[in-house]
């Protein structure tokens, strides 16, 4: 991405109109969100944001500038020419239609390309294979399962820097929206459905993560910290989680499934709640936990082994149908074509 240079160039152009935004860019280092991007996706999004503003300004600026000029020039008691019956000019009309059509045409091509490029379902190319993370939304916390590592955390997501992350997401309750602004896109999570998201962090650091879709009184507390660390630190984190964490067993899960935020879970689990980040580590998770939650079927608590990596979950494949977990294909199983949720009228 072209980054800083192009951005500040546009900034100068927009100065008179976007005083507030500029003010904001002044303290950008301090600013959360994608104006201070920490990954390629968010950086591209910031770039698009300014490109679109620059293009649309071609239509907007004349209105903002000319309206006061017209008001002054043709004011009552002014001396400008008065033509009460003038109501049509072919040339002005052609320009009026042509300019927006041209801009929309350019924008259209641009959007088509960028939408495909930044599709959250599209894997990010990288030297290393992506890190698989499974995310489950609860009222009002997020559970992160690392299927390759066989561990899980709550309240904190730890990812290695410069390695793509491939998320599989679902919700154990109502509709929610998973979002790490500094890294990139948000995506909705729904029960009985799996959505996908691909992100990458290119700076080490701590970034806010949240839920964007209102889901009850603890909504604003449904937050987590994303920690982007180097590979050694990540391995260290995995190791420590395996050693120091507690198993995600039936009792622990019952606590997670209750309504409450990270801190409530920590308190119930008997952990120190003074730590505002309230990171909760689980050393082992049941087999196929993510998909059983997604499918709403009972969890097999006897199979607490390290899960092998999920293979080849493409967007068109069916995930979590009854065949996927023969542990408990109950009769109230939904038919499972909801992986890629096509919106239909």
């Amino acid at each position: 991405m072209t980054g800083q240079g192009k951005h500040s160039l546009q900034r100068n152009r927009l100065y008179p109109l976007f005083a507030s935004l500029i003010l904001l860019s002044g303290c950008r280092a301090d600013m959360p969100g994608f104006m201070n991007p920490q990954g390629p996706i968010a950086q591209a999004q910031r770039h698009h944001f300014w490109v679109i503003i620059a293009l649309v300004m071609i239509v907007v600026i004349p209105v903002i500038i000319q309206t006061p000029l017209i008001l002054w020039r043709y004011r009552y008691r002014g001396h400008a020419v008065y033509r009460p019956k003038w109501d049509m000019s072919r040339w002005l009309d052609i320009i009026m239609w042509a300019v927006p059509i041209l801009i929309v045409a350019i924008l259209g091509v641009y959007i088509w390309r960028q939408t495909h490029e930044l599709d959250p379902y599209r894997p990010i190319a990288g030297d290393q294979p992506p890190l698989e993370v499974q995310v489950v939304g609860y009222d009002w916390k997020w559970l992160f399962i690392y299927p390759e590592q066989g561990i899980a955390t709550l309240g904190q997501l730890v990812v290695p820097v410069d390695r793509p992350i491939s998320f599989e997401l679902t919700s154990a309750t109502v509709l929610q929206s998973f979002f790490i602004p500094a890294l990139g896109s948000q995506i909705d999570v729904m029960n009985r459905m799996v959505t996908r998201l691909h992100l990458e962090a290119d700076h080490p650091g701590r970034f806010e993560g949240k839920n964007m879709q209102y889901n009850g009184e603890g909504f604003h507390r449904q937050r987590f910290v994303t920690r982007a660390v180097d590979d050694d630190a990540f391995n260290d984190f995995v190791q420590r989680t395996r050693e120091q964490g507690q198993p995600l067993d039936r009792d622990a899960y019952a606590i997670i499934a209750q309504k409450g935020d990270n801190r409530d879970v920590a308190r119930e689990l008997g952990l120190n709640t003074d730590d505002t980040d309230a990171v909760i580590r689980f050393s082992t998770v049941p087999d196929g936990l993510f998909h059983t939650i997604m499918a709403g079927s009972p969890i097999d608590w006897s199979a607490m082994t390290i899960t092998p990596p999920q293979q080849g979950t493409t967007r068109t494949s069916v995930i979590g149908g009854p065949s996927d977990n023969d542990t408990a294909p109950s009769s109230d199983h939904p038919s499972s074509s909801h992986d890629r949720k096509e919106a239909q009228p």
Partner: peptide, 17 residues
């Protein structure tokens, strides 16, 4: 028309019933 459309999208949702 909307109920027809909804019905068609729900054809798969028999939930084992």
């Amino acid at each position: 028309g909307l109920l027809f459309a909804t019905y068609v999208t729900m054809l798969g949702g028999t939930a084992g019933g």
